[in-house]
Amino acid sequence: MKRFFSLLLVFTLTIFMLACGGKKETKKAEPQKPQVNQQEIAQKVKAMLDLKAQFDQLKTQKEKDDLVQKLYNSAREILNLDPNNADANSVMDFVQLYYAKGWMERGKYSKAKEMVENVLEFSPNNEDAKKLLEKINDWEFLTKDEFKKIKRKMTFEEVQALIGYPLEKVEQKDKYGRTVIAWVYREPELKRKVVLYFNDNGVLISKYWPKNKTTKKKK
């Protein structure tokens, strides 16, 4: 009798285990992505465009620098929700071109070019980006013809408008102890330094173009 109950117990356990093992595994349903709330996006877009309108009215560089970061954050938030949003993409292009101009003013033309080319990669028909890239390519190096157009007594502003921003600005003293501001450029062929010297009133007093090195002939 005990054996019967033992066999019955074993049989019952075997059936239970087979039944459990025979069950098909059910795949867990993948969590659905939350649906984009178009009304929420529309509100964010309106707020972003209001910021852009404020930016266009600003006068000082500091005010613009402060607000352009908010514009960037606003556009980025919208693009995270809706990557193809036309308004947000347009504002993001605007922000990148703004920063590219800032790099140009510091003479960092390679960084400026990188940002402009990034805009053109996603917005190949952006006319502002095309014009800025053309200006970067023109201003990155100083040609001999451009150098000849630079005349003594020209001001900072006149020189900058003619040949662009220098790669660096160096303040130094001449042999008489007077303050001289050197604007450093590079010529395109050998990438040698070309220097323009201004007095402390911002007026050009002299300029330097590197001389070609000549090799002496052996006798």
Rank of each mutant, 00 (worst) to 15 (best):
M48L: 15
A42H: 01
A182S: 13
A53S: 11
F55R: 07
D138A: 07
K108F: 05
F94A: 09
K52Q: 14
D200C: 00
F16A: 14
P31Q: 08
T60Y: 02
V116N: 02
T155W: 09
I136W: 10
D87W: 01
K207P: 04
L97Q: 13
Q32P: 00
T179K: 13
V195K: 10
K175A: 11
F5V: 04
R106G: 06
L97P: 06
L167K: 12
G107M: 10
V195C: 01
L204N: 05
A75P: 13
E127Q: 13
G102C: 10
V170I: 15
T14I: 13
Y109D: 11
E117Q: 11
F198R: 07
L7F: 08
Y197T: 00
F16E: 06
K175G: 01
K211W: 03
L49P: 00
V95H: 10
Y208S: 14
K218S: 09
E171V: 05
I41Y: 05
V203S: 10
V159W: 04
M92P: 03
K216W: 11
K108Y: 09
V45P: 00
T14K: 00
W139H: 08
Y109L: 05
L81P: 01
M17H: 04
Y197L: 05
V116R: 04
A19Y: 12
K211D: 15
M104L: 12
Y208F: 12
Q43D: 07
K217S: 13
N89T: 06
V184E: 06
E117V: 02
V10L: 14
K101P: 01
N73Q: 14
G202A: 07
L97F: 06
E168I: 01
N125Y: 09
L79N: 07
A100Y: 09
F55A: 09
E171I: 06
D50C: 00
E189T: 12
E157Q: 11
V170W: 03
Y98W: 12
D145E: 15
Q57V: 07
K28G: 02
E171T: 07
E121M: 09
N199D: 15
L71C: 11
M115Y: 06
R186M: 13
F11A: 14
V170A: 04
R178G: 02
E117H: 00
D65Y: 01
R152E: 15
M92G: 04
I41R: 07
T179Q: 12
A86Q: 15
E127F: 01
M17R: 03
A53P: 00
K149S: 14
Q69G: 08
N199I: 08
R178M: 09
P31V: 11
M1G: 06
F141M: 07
Q96C: 02
P188N: 10
S123R: 08
G177S: 09
I181H: 02
V36F: 03
L196K: 03
A42T: 07
F4G: 04
F156E: 14
L167W: 03
I41S: 05
G202R: 06
R186K: 15
N212Q: 14
L142A: 05
L81H: 08
T143W: 03
E114W: 00
D93W: 02
K62M: 12
Y109M: 09
N118E: 12
K28T: 12
